[in-house]
Design a binder for these strands. Sequence first.
RNA 1: GUGGGUAUAGCUUAGUUGGUUAAAGCGCCAGUUUGUGGCACUGGAGACCGUCGGUUCGAAUCCGACUAUCCACCCCA
Length: 432
Amino acid sequence: MSLITKRVYGAEDVLPKDSYKWQFVESLMRSEADTFGFKEIRTPVFEHTELFRRGVGDTTDVVQKEMYTFDTKGGTSLTLRPEGTAGAARALLEHAIYNDGLPVKVYYLVSCYRYEKKQANRYREFHQFGLETYGTASPAADAEMICAAQSIFDRLQIGDKLTLELNSIGCPKCRAKYYEALKEYFSQYTSELCETCLSRLERNPMRILDCKSPVCSKIAEGAPTVLDYICDDCREHFEGVKRLLDNAGVKYVVNPKIVRGLDYYTRTVFEFVTNSLGAQGTVCGGGRYDGLIEELGGQSLPSLGFALGIERLLALLDAEGVEIPKPDECGLYIAVMGDSAQAKAFDLLAQVRSCSIHAETDIVGRSLRAQMKYADKIGAKFSLVLGDNEIAENKAELKNMETGEKRKINLDSRFADEFIAVYCDESTTISF
RNA sequence: GUGGGUAUAGCUUAGUUGGUUAAAGCGCCAGUUUGUGGCACUGGAGACCGUCGGUUCGAAUCCGACUAUCCACCCCA
């Protein structure tokens, strides 16, 4: 296949037959964010490269090898956003949104870009929905964040198909102590650990906990747990989050091995995971990042958020057999014979469409029979044949395509009213 | 970046030990006499058999390389 008819590696098209699924989950997530008091923020796809280096973290894989970075003609280094938080945080600082009153609660729905090998449910261009809360250190904010995510999954009927895994990785102070303990522990096994884990030993020993190699994970089983090392403040915070989730009836499992790959996380981290999506089981991930705003040059502003992968969410809905309601099919198809009929059809359609009903006529120039076949194919609920006779009489036969029943209908200004009366009476619409 | 699988029409596939114009189903388009869809029937469009090279009288079929794609490692949503 030639280059110009081939999409770029790792990018996906959303085809007309599927776009309603995206629209459905997008609008559901927006409305859920609204009910929790989050307002949308839209930021550019690209940012100064330095923002991500500082925000996401220089040592992360995302920054080190997955960014789409390029120079402008003026020589500025820009990067396509690999995630949504950094841009939102930048806008918060640039516009001093925190002066509008705390907390600041925003949501975003964006495309993100990471230069990775493509895999099932992992793409180079992917879409994230995320929530962010800035300016509160209270466990209540953590609980609200998690409840919002849970609520979205519940509304999509997959709330019980995902496992919420929860952990606290502490603040920088207690984490330093934990790192020391981990290094000490894993140093005993340097001859057995895999190559990548050996390199992780110095840089980020927590990652070893996450290694899928049987040898490493066996060794990791005996490793010290974060929760034994976090300080009293962090422990109290974590207990507070759990208490609130218990009260709210949100189920979770504490998994001390959850390690998030972005440097900005502190204290609470969580993931909603499934095992029905192959290797990429994390549908939603997030946590607290109390140091992020300060890292970007602002005042200290404790914050938190999560991001939800839309491709993965849709894949999960599909895997779990959740049916997304299809958009309304054609309500009325007008078959036409001749030029004056076509002109008349345009008038009638305008009346019906002004009532937000999907209505169509022939724009191909097909025979009557072919027009009827087409009406059937697109699932038209009613059809109408318009020819010289109908125009002369100013009346036509409205046909119910399901039952085949016909009834006379006026073609004057009463048309839309009469049609809608019949339409509402005879057609059934399914609601989710 | 490292492995493994796969590559025939828009989709799903058939193609016998290498042998003439590469099949089928679905889908698409048109038609089955004069103004009415679903069913059925008829016809049509649509494939340089992923690409390049090699073996051979002859390659969709055998060999090699490349490319694409899928899955996994890694990473993460």
